[in-house]
Design a protein around this nucleic acid. Sequence first.
RNA 1: GGCGAAUUGGAGAAGUGGCUUAACUCACAUGCCUUUCACGCAUGCAUUCACGGGUUCGAAUCCCGUAUUCGUCACCA
Length: 557
Amino acid sequence: MITNKQLADLIFPNIAETIDDLEKRYPPRNLPAGAEVTRFAPSPTGFLHTGSLFTSMICRKVATQSNGVFYIRLEDTDTKREIAGSGEQLLDQLHIFDVNPDEGYLGNAEKGQYGPYIQSKRASIYCVVIKHLLEEGKAYPCFCSAQDLEALRNEQERQKLNPGYYGEFAKCRNLTNDEKYEKIKNGEKFVIRFRSSGNHENKIKVSDLVRGDFEIAENDQDIVIYKSDGLPTYHFAHVVDDHFMRTTTVIRGEEWVASLPIHVELFAALGWQAPHYAHLPVIMKVDEETGNKRKLSKRKDREAAVSYFIEDGYLPKALIMYLMTIANSNFEEWILNNNFEGMENFIFSFKKMSLDGALFDMGKFNFFARELLAKFNKNEITELALDYAKKYNDKLYQTIKNNQKYFSDIMNIDREKANPRKDYEKFSNILDIIGYFYEDGYNAALEAGLPFNEKFSKEDLVSALSAIKEKLSIDQDEQSWFNNLKEIGTALNFAANNKEYKANPELFKGNIGDLAEILRITLTGRKNAPNLYSVMVVLGIEESHKRIDRVISLLKN
RNA sequence: GGCGAAUUGGAGAAGUGGCUUAACUCACAUGCCUUUCACGCAUGCAUUCACGGGUUCGAAUCCCGUAUUCGUCACCA
């Protein structure tokens, strides 16, 4: 009769190491009391998802504030879905958001004593543990084909039973060792399943850092732990890796709470202490078609991919701040009180987390983005714009480079003061906002037609503009400049005082606001623009006169 | 369908039996300031906490039921 040991040796002839060897190789970490070891464990299947950034940001925060360790592990056991190069890209993007690991997979290298940190390179480690389980009779090879499994499922559905490979339905569980040995010798394909001793009728208590304690049915599924390609499944790899990498706190999305019983049973079967778990709510969005909430989808929502924020020229910090307001609602008040600075001093708490998924609010996110951009001085924001434009926006890059001082003068309007303007939330649309400062933007405005108030005749406009051109100087401070404009207006019968005008509008051609509007439209092509005096100063007197002349000649035609 | 979770204004939410006539923030609206916009300031925006029942002198807060939404039930993670 074939023993468990003989079967295990047949399956893993080259595995000589034991679990004890692994325990020695990966000893418990020497960390101060209370230090938490967290990890972000992405699959290299595409771009960094906003939800993943959310999770990894929290992992980083929890480790930092407890003097612990945050590491990254690449979960590349699904070879079919793997996208080449995406692991490196994930790391690059995390770095952009300043979420940097202390150890682990670093893209092109590895750092730390608990590696390898790429699961496909840990195959022999999993085999050691599986061999042990095999010897103990807690795991067994299963020879069922995909068709067998499908037939099983159909039958269970017909009988309205729970689907899956468990109890009496776990056929291969009852094969004798001799039978299994024979099949393997014959080269039959197999996977290895964990032999569950759980009962679905039993409830177990589980504990979660954000959700508190709750009850859930015990696992009774003989789940696959070792796939026919020789790699472990997620459930098994998670248990083995987080044990030997000495993770204290597993922070992951809430889609994992349903498989918690599996993980709990696996840890128990191996005699290991399970880590603490924190299952995070998912960031949602209202689906336009169904009207229901759904997870942010990379296919449907551009804000689901972190690359969108980078390519659109948002400040990475703005996203991080916004995500932190979702993570801990008290953060918002905190950061407002701290003038949007020093968020590294904020203490994150799982207990302050909401349990249902928040809707991604573009409006609120833009609020943070605008506040943050308003804090930079003209040189800083020019550099930032240049950095962005260099990589993602050639037109903007050429525009700035062509005359960098001019651009920073534009940026400087109403900027370096206590309550600066908050016009910009990102760099991608900055030319849409300030385009009229440039030749082609101004030309486009002229072509589109100038929105002058219809109560003024062309003659009124021409005479007003002529007088302004002749008499309005910008070689003076703003107050004098405005007085200057008022005098010009008075001569043309524009009321200098708004209250006087409102009392007897019929006595005047218009008020000073009307005159300012005529000039504003002439210089910028639009009714809304920043402070007129600043605009004129930035444009310069020569360009201002040129624009006045162009509009006068347009009006005369 | 089974199992788990959630449900407070347009959005994020505070709130754990009486200090709540439901905080704070974004958004929106109005007014003031004002050469427009913005900034700033002020005001307004849930008579009510998914719904129904119960416990209690008293409930958004406790209990029961219903509904809805989310998650999950792979040799994917």
